[in-house]
Nucleic acid binder design. Structure first.
Length: 729
DNA sequence: TACCCTCGAGTTCA
DNA sequence: CTCGAGGGTA
């Protein structure tokens, strides 16, 4: 569909920004509207300021908003209690924390809930390490404190910095506040501490101290903390360390980051060393050598949970032997050698008022449960995802029944759980409470946004029906167009500051932005005489100026971001990077994709030859570039932006980019470890020797592969040679 | 074919 | 964070 893009209200006379009416001339209704709008806007700015660390308005503008907001409340006191955002609009942020990059990332742990999962965890470790059934593997087991992780850096025994976990690689510098925590030593004790030592652990508040703090909050008329963890987080993130000092935070040490010299070769030994250095170790830390012992300790902790005096949410198991830990390594972002055995998550019961359908960027019809608001684990929940049609009907991913096949109906009383203590989910239905007139939910067969037919496609390979029903409206579906635009400006794509979801909604609705390329003509069109952005409600001159600047800044964009922004199905962040790295320029990608449409060409094979790109992804790419309207969009867009080719990423590893084959018996590591290690260093591991192979690592008993290696004149080395080449680890 | 892992796309609340 | 599915390998 070809859309003309008129500027909004083009027949309105040009008008100057009108100064807001004095508050005493407002009707209560108008005041209420403005109050609500202001609360939303201020909350948004606060969020950008605090969470994204990117103020969206100047301080002066922010102050003006707040002044107006307070003036309204002064004139119309009834507003204070009516709008729930009122109390959330906190004090004006003055300063912020600087960032600290962790030298070693702070990882998360794999979770388990059932005993069987603990067995599997131990089994997996034995298999990976090829440890015989009768040989014991020792684990440590300790309570998982429900607080905030903190990384403390000591140099020559002195605390030099403290950082929160953040996203795992970059945290916030809370050193001044950490110094006020009694359990955190300023100076390490003893003599044998390493020169550089990063100790990691958990900051928490006891139940008693939490209650006392909340009493004080109440007395001061301030908002109460929902739970000890929030209170601890709030206390640690105080800008004034004196306030942190007045909150009795505690700290348990349980791990480490960078360390110049290892004081021990086991997890438990390390923890003991930390104790010698002056840290507090959780007294319920034990060594266990069987699954039964682990589970027994879990039950002990669970039984004592209420008497501990602080919140815990499970038990952490770690392989004790550090040698084994390093052999086990990591899976994506969590170590293979540790597991968090969580206590059953908190649940609550409420009523399902309605089921709404949202339309995603790919046309997926996503059912959302609107719930009678209820508190689960200290947070009020009013929405929850229902995943898909089958989930509502009581059918799981592989066709088996879930919830004993009970479907979910509007009016049902449902059990809500915050999965992983964060995202709420409809766990079950209380059948006894189902109203007599409740009817099975009829999943729409048409898109609620555009009315097009919505279908569940068949997977061409397996013949199975897709679990997701999708709108077939494509270009004509406004919801899809809107979501594609949101994707286009999202964080890993164009990341245009000042153009978030809300603004996209607004600008899409009035026709200002309908296609990605419209973003880059926005300023030119705005310069015309029509109603300008800066005169609109909710937009100030500065925010518009900043927005234009942000858009200008993105006229140059990295290839991988650009590819990702296009929103090709199955092409996310990672695949976009793979494509960028393989082809180098956007033209090369485009050419290959177009060529692949011709079955004679081997371009399709080139796509699938990229590790991580298979036939499904390749097909999606080819389809995307085949579409006429996508071509038009790209032409228009490329006239506006410059896509930067990627520079060849040169890793400093000696085997980066090489293809390695391991053959024969390996003595110092298992095959799986060897593979994981090589890949970590940027090498590709193949199963057989070909002329593409660069290195063959041959152990004793290597046969045909070794001969082949000689035939192809491939570099051959033994395990020791490998370690000489790449170093240990 | 059966797995194991990674990825994409969806999600909540503050 | 979770689900389902794609990709790759035993």
């Amino acid at each position: 569909m070809v859309l003309t893009v008129p500027f909004a209200d083009s027949n309105m006379p040009e008008n100057k920004p009108t100064p807001p009416k004095p508050v005493d001339q407002l009707t209560p209704a108008a005041a209420r509207l403005e109050h609500e709008a202001l609360a939303r806007e201020i909350a948004q700015h606060d969020r950008r300021y605090y969470e994204d660390d990117a103020p969206s308005v100047s301080d002066a503008e922010y102050d003006a908003l707040r002044l107006r907001y307070e003036a309204l409340e002064a004139q119309f006191p009834e507003l204070k209690s009516t709008e729930s955002l009122t109390r959330k609009v906190g004090s004006k942020p003055s300063e912020k924390f600087s960032k600290i990059r962790h030298r070693a990332p702070m990882l998360s742990l794999a979770n388990a809930f059932a005993d069987e999962e603990v067995e599997e965890f131990v089994e997996r470790i034995r298999r990976f390490l090829q440890i015989k059934a009768d040989a014991p593997v020792i684990f440590t087991a300790e309570p998982k404190i429900d607080g905030l992780s903190l990384s403390l850096r000591y140099e020559h025994g002195r605390l030099v910095s403290a950082a929160t976990r953040g996203d795992g690689s970059v945290g916030e510098d809370v050193t001044a506040n950490a110094r006020t925590v009694g359990d955190i030593p300023q100076k390490l004790t003893g003599k044998d501490f390493p020169e550089i030592l990063e100790v990691r652990g958990e900051v928490y508040l006891s139940h008693a101290d939490f209650a006392a703090i909340n009493e004080r909050q109440a007395a001061a008329g301030k908002q109460l903390f929902a739970n000890p963890r929030n209170a601890a987080a709030g206390s640690l993130r105080q800008l004034d360390p004196a306030i942190t000092a007045s909150r009795p935070l505690h700290f348990f040490a349980y791990g480490w980051g960078e360390i110049s010299e290892m004081p021990a070769d086991t997890q438990s030994g390390m923890i003991d060393a930390f104790r010698r250095f002056g840290f507090i170790i959780n007294p319920l830390t034990r060594r266990c050598s069987t699954v039964a012992e682990l589970l027994e300790h879990y039950r002990t902790i669970e039984t004592n949970r209420a008497n501990l005096g602080y919140d815990i949410d499970g038990v952490v198991y770690k392989v004790d032997d550090l040698n084994l830990q390093s052999r086990l390594g990591f899976v994506s972002r969590s170590p293979r050698w540790a597991l968090a055995h969580k206590f059953p998550a908190q649940q609550a019961t409420t009523i399902l008022d309605a089921i709404e359908i949202n339309v995603g960027r790919t046309g997926s019809l996503n059912p959302l449960a609107r719930l009678r608001p209820i508190t689960v684990g200290g947070v009020v929940v009013s929405n929850a995802t229902l995943h898909n049609e089958d989930y509502i009907r009581g059918i799981g991913g592989n066709g088996e029944k879930i919830r004993n096949g009970v479907d979910i109906r509007v009016g049902d009383t449902v059990i809500i759980q915050r999965a992983g203590d964060v995202i709420p989910k409809v766990l079950d239905v209380v059948l006894e409470k189902r109203p007599a007139d409740a009817k099975p939910y009829l999943f729409p067969s048409n898109c609620p946004a555009c009315g097009s037919h919505a279908v569940r496609e068949q997977n061409p390979r397996t013949g199975k029906e897709d679990s997701v029903r999708r709108c077939t409206g494509g270009l004509i579906c406004p919801a899809q167009a809107r979501e594609r635009l949101k994707h286009f400006v999202s964080r890993n794509a164009f990341d245009i500051e000042g153009l978030g979801e809300q603004r996209i909604e607004e600008l899409y609705a009035d026709g200002t932005i309908r296609r990605p390329q419209d973003i880059f003509t926005l300023e030119a069109r705005n310069a015309g005489k029509l109603q300008r952005l800066e005169n609109r409600e909710g937009w100030g001159a500065t925010s518009v100026k900043n927005l234009f600047a942000a858009i200008e800044a993105r006229r140059n964009i990295a290839l991988n971001r650009f590819v990702y922004a296009l929103g090709i199905p199955h092409v996310g962040d990672t695949s976009a990077k793979l494509l960028a790295r393989h082809f180098g320029t956007f033209e090369a990608i485009q050419e290959a994709a177009k060529a692949a449409a011709d079955p004679e060409s081997d371009a399709h094979a080139e796509l699938t030859s990229i590790g991580g790109i298979g036939s499904v992804v390749a097909d999606a790419i080819v389809e995307f570039f085949k579409e006429q309207h996508n071509e038009e969009m790209l032409d228009a867009l490329l006239a506006q932006v410059h896509v930067e080719p990627v520079e060849a990423t040169v890793s400093d590893s000696p085997v980066a980019g090489k293809t390695v084959v391991f053959t024969g018996a390996l003595e110092q590591m298992t095959r799986e470890e060897a593979k994981a290690m090589a890949e970590r260093l940027g090498a590709k591991v193949a199963g057989s020797v070909s002329k593409k192979t660069d290195i063959v690592v041959a152990g004793p008993g290597a046969g045909s592969k070794l001969n082949k290696a000689k035939e192809f004149d491939v570099q051959v080395m033994d395990e020791d040679g490998w370690f000489v080449l790449v170093g240990r680890n």
